[in-house]
């Protein structure tokens, strides 16, 4: 079999599977990003809150999920989650082992890690908002909720975009670790292709290239978002 056949879309070709796997990688990462955004927002507001115990909870969350290896967290969620699902199953009368779907477990694990990093991004973005602008909002009579919606949120989003781009890139690479749960995302599929054709070098290089394509494409998307969001800023403030 020639390289062209192996890499083509034909019966024996791996192109279709690899592209599908890349798509699955994007889906896992995107789901994780959304989960992480929700967790990150909650954790960031805990860390910024006036309550000492909430601040402590937020601090513990970011310390644990940034400080423990990603792979370990994936194992904990996948096997721990499966054990929990099995326990619920046996309570309801099922006797066998029930697995947490690997997509769900993977997205949740990567999302929880991403949430810890996103929390720091949001916290930094909030602290970067000019105190004077918040005072002006108070002084004009805006209630707390209105201030949050009209003054804080839009600016946090704008200031967070570069940081979120960074977190997205990290999550995209973390998602490769989800391959240990058997989910046929890009890493796992590359491994299978390499193993079954014995063309290790070729397929791992191709897998690596596909990751690079994904990261550089997403880089562009974030750059464009950043430019759009920074329309209101002076041109000198670092827009390449």
């Amino acid at each position: 079999m020639t390289f062209i056949e192996m890499l083509g879309f034909g019966q024996k070709g791996w192109a279709g599977l690899l592209l599908g796997a890349a798509l699955l990688t994007i889906c896992v990462t995107a789901t994780a990003l959304v989960i992480g955004a929700c967790l990150g927002a909650v954790v960031a507001s805990a860390k910024l809150s006036g309550s000492r115990s909430l601040r402590l909870i937020g601090h513990v969350y970011t310390t644990v999920f940034r400080g423990v290896p990603e792979l370990l967290i994936i194992y904990v969620i996948y096997f721990g989650g499966s054990a929990a699902v099995t326990a619920v199953g046996s309570f309801l009368g099922y006797t066998g082992f029930l697995g947490l779907p690997s997509f769900v477990a993977g997205a949740l694990a990567v999302g929880m890690i991403s949430g810890a990093y996103q929390a720091e991004v949001y916290r930094g973005a909030f602290l970067a908002i000019s105190r004077g602008e918040l005072e002006a909002a108070q002084a004009i009579g805006m209630a707390k909720g209105l201030r949050f919606r009209r003054i804080i949120m839009p600016q946090v989003v704008r200031l967070a975009i570069p940081g979120i781009g960074n977190v997205w890139q990290l999550s995209l690479k973390d998602s490769a670790l989800v391959s240990v749960t058997g989910l046929a995302e890009l890493m796992r599929t590359t491994q299978i292709a390499a193993g079954s054709t014995r063309q290790y070098f070729l397929f791992f290089i191709i897998g690596g290239c596909l990751y690079l394509v994904l990261t550089s494409l997403s880089d562009r998307v974030f750059q464009r978002a950043e430019r759009r969001a920074n329309r209101s800023m002076p041109a000198s403030m670092g827009q390449a």
């Binding site: 000019s130 602008e133 002006a136 909002a137 002084a139 209630a143 839009p154 600016q155």
Partner: peptide
């Protein structure tokens, strides 16, 4: 909040909302 809306405040450092145009700043309140 209501009393504040009846008192105009002008700051030393202007404190316009940087993500809004001038017109948007003025109609916001």
């Amino acid at each position: 909040d209501r009393i504040r809306s009846e008192l105009g405040m002008v700051f030393q450092s202007f404190n316009l909302w940087s993500h809004m145009t001038i017109l948007e700043n003025i109609i916001e309140g």
